[in-house]
């Protein structure tokens, strides 16, 4: 082990960890508390840190006045499908980039890095025209296709790191035993890579679930809106309806947070591999 810690060192460490925990969790606590106050109490003095009366009015308003259930469903479908397809496609490209040496390899990796530098807004106009030509504006499949493309570069780089950590010998043994390369990939490599794949999928899902600008541009009708688009709608007017906003925020954060909580071990493990190789 690393050298023994002094008592003072330990105290400092746990004080810092405690403070950071409070700082991290407090905004979430605060938005939740706000959402559970009756709309009138949100703007009452003194500010209540624990409301006397809990109310679900903000939440019922979301499903009554607005179609928040529809938005949640849309986001769920789009993020799940796009995240899963992007993971599968990235697995193939990551496998090749990890296992083979070829001339265009560094160019491909650079191309992946450059996608991270392109501001979304430079592509919005032409993308809209392209989707119009494909008859996929205001269409969930259209947004899914765009999101898949958004997810692929980082997902590929991440999974490549994971593949590189698995010795070649594993699949070579499988191939000598008569499996094809595909067979070796799917029956031998994938089970070993499960944490990495789960981490990659969660990253994709969260990215798609949270994406705002593309979805605002491509989805017009109310029945096709995603959650971030709906949230954006709450502030387009002069004032923010903080009651609805806070309730909507809680409902938006909850699914991804649960996903993170359940899979945090997988994420660290998965990124562990990706991180080491960059």
């Amino acid at each position: 082990m690393i050298g023994k810690e002094s008592t003072a060192g330990r105290a400092a460490k746990f004080t810092f960890l405690g403070l950071w925990l409070v700082f991290t969790v407090f905004p979430l606590y605060w938005i939740t508390i706000t959402s559970l106050k009756a709309p009138g109490d949100i703007f009452a003095f003194p500010i209540a840190y624990w409301p006397e009366n809990f109310s679900l009015e903000n939440y019922s308003g979301l499903f009554g006045k607005a179609d928040f259930g529809v938005y949640l469903t849309n986001s769920l479908i789009i993020a799940t499908v796009a995240g899963a397809v992007a993971t599968v496609i990235s697995m193939l490209s990551a496998y090749v980039l990890a296992r083979f040496e070829f001339r265009t390899k560094s160019a491909l990796l650079m191309a992946a890095l450059v996608t991270q530098m392109i501001p979304t807004f430079i592509a919005l106009g032409p993308l809209y025209l392209l989707m119009t030509d494909l008859k996929m504006v205001d269409n969930r499949l259209g947004l899914i296709l765009v999101y898949i493309a958004v997810c692929i570069p980082f997902c590929t780089v991440m999974l490549r790191g994971f593949f590189e950590n698995i010795p070649d010998a594993l699949e070579e043994a499988a191939m000598i035993d008569g499996l094809s390369r595909f067979g070796a990939l799917f029956r031998v490599l994938l089970p070993v890579m499960r944490p990495g794949i789960v981490a990659a999928f969660i990253f994709n899902f969260v990215n798609c679930w949270n994406e705002l600008f593309l979805s605002v541009t491509l989805m017009n009708s109310d029945s096709n809106k995603t959650v971030p688009t709906a949230l954006n709608g709450f502030i387009s007017s002069f004032n923010i309806d903080w009651g609805s906003m806070s309730a909507a925020a809680v409902l938006t954060i909850l699914p991804t947070m649960l996903l993170f909580a359940f899979a945090s071990r997988h994420i660290v493990q998965g990124l562990t591999a990706g991180a080491v190789k960059g």
């Binding site: 990235s90 191309a111 996608t115 430079i122 592509a123 919005l124 032409p126 898949i148 570069p153």
Partner: peptide
């Protein structure tokens, strides 16, 4: 698959833009 997706939905709009 990866190259086609990224070329069509990321690089093409960027270059057109």
């Amino acid at each position: 698959p990866a190259a086609i997706f990224v070329a069509v939905f990321t690089y093409y709009p960027m270059i057109a833009g």
